[in-house]
Design a protein around this nucleic acid. Structure first.
Lengths: 174, 174
DNA sequence: GTTGAAAGGATGGACCT
DNA sequence: AGGTCCATCCTTTCAAC
């Protein structure tokens, strides 16, 4: 028995070394996580047990965060998608905390990043229509003070990939 | 009861009527698609078979698109995320086709939208570092002519939800 | 909508290469 | 280390109520 490697759920392992097989497994799981072990094993050219052990380790190491269903926004009636560029004059901690909470509390904010440069934040907001966006916007600015907002309306989703690019293995002996 | 609607894999159903139970199921599956039927049934307050039938229908109707593993970008060494605002002078079909192909061919382009307004496109690009972004950028502009590019560097992912807001689902605190 | 039964997949052990 | 076989448990799937 080896001692259990304590890998907490939140712990991000920076230096996870992935070999070719790991990357193939991740590639498959990013495409379709409903595949059976057998199918994955076949596609990566290995057999069940080692594949299963690798998946388990990748989960424990936090490389695989979770497994989710991807829904169709249009089927849910969410036909409007906005990217919102936010500039603020206030940069104190207290403001940032309230802004953050305001974003977290609103499910229509699907993504939010703090940026470098003169634009402070970018949000991705998924709503039913322009009116719903305006309600969101009014509600947000009434909760936190924002200096300047630019909304970019998406006309067409050209590409939407939940799959991250999996980096190439550093070639040893190259 | 309605006649079976012919739902091809790609066909987007605009008018899918979802009841409370459907929405609860979708809510759960967006959070964690690795839950067993039993667990989902318990959480939505129904029992196995009807839940199973609903999930099946939601899949057939295209509301549930797929099931994927979500990976941790940092664990993969993808520590830089850029939002790229693209303006172009060329708006002909041929250019758009080549631009689209260029985006589709590059896995580091995780998301791309065509916009209304004076910015024509927004891209989300996930790469290892600034140098990798520059390589991407040089490669892209050498392939297609682009009038103006602004890159916004993410300093911090404040919120990243693969979950869409499901209309009319009572949020906690209501 | 509920129960339960049969089929198939996941998990992990033992053992071999 | 990975591969094979296997045994057990859990889940999905679907028939019957």
């Amino acid at each position: 028995m080896s001692e259990p490697v304590s890998t907490e759920s939140g712990a991000t392992q920076i230096s996870v070394r992935l070999d070719e097989v790991d990357r193939k497994i991740l590639f498959q799981l990013q495409q379709d996580a409903s595949l059976s072990l057998d199918q994955i094993a076949e596609r990566v050219g290995a057999s069940k047990t080692p594949v299963w052990n690798r998946i388990r380790k990748l989960r424990e190491a936090g490389v695989i965060r979770k497994q989710v269903a991807i829904l169709d926004p249009e089927a849910l009636g969410l036909e409007a998608c906005f990217f919102v560029l936010v500039r603020t004059s206030e940069h104190d901690k207290e403001w940032a905390g309230r802004f953050l909470k305001a974003l977290r509390d609103r499910p229509e904010v699907v993504e939010a990043h703090r940026l470098a440069g003169d634009i402070d934040y970018i949000l991705k907001v998924q709503v039913r229509n322009a009116r719903a966006y305006d309600r969101f916007y009014q509600s947000l600015i009434s909760e936190v003070k924002i200096h300047n907002v630019t909304a970019l309306l998406s006309m067409e989703e050209i590409k939407a990939s939940s799959a991250l690019p999996i980096p190439d293995l550093p070639q040893k002996g190259a």
